[in-house]
C-alpha cells in the first residue's frame, strides 16, 4: 500500500518514540537553534567538540515525527565522528537515513536537523542551495497533460 507505510517506516517511528541523544549539554562548545516557522518544528543542538571530533551531541525541540526522527538519527550518526566526515553529510544522506521520499513541505521537516547541524558547527548562515534543486525536479515531475500528478521521485541517492 502507498502513503503511510512509506512515510512512517518502523525506523522513523522508533526514533520518534525513543529518540537517541535527546536532551541538552551542560557546557556546550557550540549550541544552535533553528525552526521551520511554517510548521512550528524547532530543533536545538548542543555540541562538545574535542580534537576535531564531535565528542557529544544532544538535541532538543519539538515538531513532527519526521523532523524529530531525523534529528535523532543524525545525532546518533555523528557522535564520535571527525568533523571532516560530518562536514560531508548531505541532504541525500539524511534522506537515505530516513529511507523515504518526502514531498516539498515535509522535505523541510526532514532537513531541519541537518540545517541546524551545519549552521551550528560551521556557522553557515543557511543551508546552501540544494533544497531548490529538489523543487525544480519536483516541478519537472508534474504531468500537466493528465489528471494524475506523477510521483515526484527523487533520484541520485548515494
Amino acid at each position: 500500500m502507498s502513503g503511510m507505510e512509506d512515510l512512517y517506516r518502523e525506523n522513523i517511528l522508533d526514533h520518534y518514540k525513543h529518540p537517541r541523544n535527546r536532551g541538552t549539554l551542560e557546557h556546550p562548545d557550540v549550541s544552535y537553534e533553528d525552526a521551520n516557522p511554517l510548521c512550528g518544528d524547532k530543533i536545538r543542538m548542543d555540541f562538545n567538540i574535542r580534537d576535531g571530533k564531535i565528542e557529544a551531541v544532544r538535541f532538543s525541540g519539538s515538531g513532527c515525527s519526521i523532523s524529530q526522527a531525523a534529528a535523532s538519527m543524525l545525532c546518533e550518526t555523528i557522535e564520535g565522528k571527525p568533523l571532516d566526515e560530518v562536514k560531508k553529510l548531505s541532504r541525500d544522506d539524511v534522506l537515505e537515513m530516513l529511507g523515504i521520499e518526502l514531498g516539498p513541505v515535509r522535505l523541510k521537516c526532514g532537513l531541519l536537523a541537518l540545517k541546524t547541524l551545519k549552521a551550528g558547527v560551521y556557522g553557515l548562515p543557511q543551508w546552501p542551495g540544494e533544497e531548490d534543486e529538489g523543487e525544480v525536479e519536483q516541478a519537472r515531475a508534474t504531468d500537466f497533460s493528465g489528471t494524475q500528478p506523477a510521483n515526484g521521485r527523487r533520484e541520485g541517492h548515494r
Partner: peptide, 11 residues
Amino acid sequence: HPHDVATVLDD
C-alpha cells in the same frame, strides 16, 4: 504534530 495527523489522514 498536526503534520503527522494530516499524513495519516491523507492515507
